[in-house]
């Protein structure tokens, strides 16, 4: 089960008020010893920093002078900043277009690579490889050339007599080259879907066949509903991760977020505010706004899941 599935399980158990056996804690001391490194990390590198950045988001802080309390100034400045909204828009387009496209392709290919199909391990490896390498700088560098003026894509288009511009340098298309890069890494969700397909009991299909259900009917009534929880978990996690995309936008645009801020991702602007402008307070305010945005998208996803995700519990 995925991490998200596990979380949901914990929540459902709590809600149902499952009869809690009178719990004893025989291993308290040993457990906290085993957990010690993790606890230090949790407090020192996660909880502590969260509190600190929340505080910093209400201050003016440049690393050199001590932080100075400015109330909501960072947030009001942020909401009035055209560049901030632009980066927000760019990132939302990336997430809203890239994630569903990637998952749709992953699902389509997982369904095509049916159980026991000949050559499945080979195809799976070929499709999985890009998702493994896709986060690296080398691939981002390659992407610049693939979508460059004289690159691979335009080379292929020239075959059809199409004379296309340099995609990377064009303000209307630069973002889409990054979305294509994201879609290109569909291999890992595909592997997850394949594993999910394998867990659907064969007897469901047999029973349906006996009852006279055809191929399409079996797909619509068995495969698809039973796969929806896995699609959902992937959707939630991929949305969360896609909001944090950084490396590819940074490298493909040569660190500028260009052309003309067309690929200025939210995280890129945040990085620049923090480490180029040394405006740590403003950057912290941006980071907390990102948390709120991601949480909102996640909540919307959960709310929408009522309408399309199938649970048998």
């Amino acid at each position: 089960m995925s991490s998200l599935g596990e979380l949901r399980e914990l929540a459902v158990r709590r809600k149902k008020g499952a009869p809690r056996a009178k719990e004893k804690y025989p291993d308290n001391k040993a457990a906290y010893l085993f957990l010690l490194p993790w606890l230090i990390g949790l407090l020192g590198l996660t909880v502590g920093p969260m509190v600190a950045s929340l505080y910093l988001s209400f201050t003016d802080y440049n690393l050199l002078q001590p932080p100075e309390w400015t109330g909501l100034a960072n947030f009001t400045a942020m909401f009035q900043d055209e560049r901030f909204w632009n980066s927000f828009r760019v990132t939302v387009v990336y997430v809203v277009a890239g994630v569903p496209l990637q998952l749709a392709l992953a699902l389509a290919l997982a369904l095509l690579l049916d159980k026991g199909m000949r050559g499945l391990p080979f195809y799976r490896s070929v499709f999985y490889l890009p998702s493994l390498l896709g986060g690296s700088v080398a691939i981002a560098i390659l992407w610049r050339q693939v979508f460059g003026k004289d690159g691979l894509v335009n080379g292929a288009l020239a075959w059809f007599g199409v004379d296309a511009p340099g995609w990377i340098g064009h303000p209307d298309y630069a973002l889409w080259t990054l979305i294509v890069l994201h879609v290109w890494t569909f291999g890992s969700p595909m592997v997850i879907f394949l594993a999910g397909l394998r867990q659907i009991p064969e007897m469901f299909y047999e029973a349906a066949s006996i009852d006279g259900a055809g191929r399409v009917r079996r797909f619509l009534s068995i495969t698809l509903p039973l796969l929806t929880p896995i699609v959902f978990f992937n959707l939630v996690l991929q949305v969360i991760f896609a909001f944090q995309a950084f490396t590819q936008a940074y490298v493909v645009s040569g660190g500028t977020g260009g052309p003309g801020d067309a690929t200025m991702f939210y995280t890129l602007l945040l990085y620049k505010e923090a480490f180029n402008e040394l405006d740590m307070g403003y950057a912290s305010a941006m980071a907390w706004f990102l948390v709120i945005v991601v949480a909102t998208f996640t909540a919307i996803n959960f709310w929408l899941s009522k309408y399309w995700v199938f649970y048998d519990d």
């Binding site: 979380l7 719990e23 804690y25 457990a31 906290y32 950045s53």
Partner: peptide
């Protein structure tokens, strides 16, 4: 192991996978 606070800590651990790291970036630096 069975210990006090296991479910809560486990949920926090799972939740931390989903926390955007940008919110930790400045203080960690």
């Amino acid at each position: 192991l069975r210990f006090r606070g296991r479910n809560l800590l486990f949920a926090i651990m799972l939740g931390s996978i989903m926390l955007p790291f940008q919110v930790l970036m400045v203080p960690q630096f």
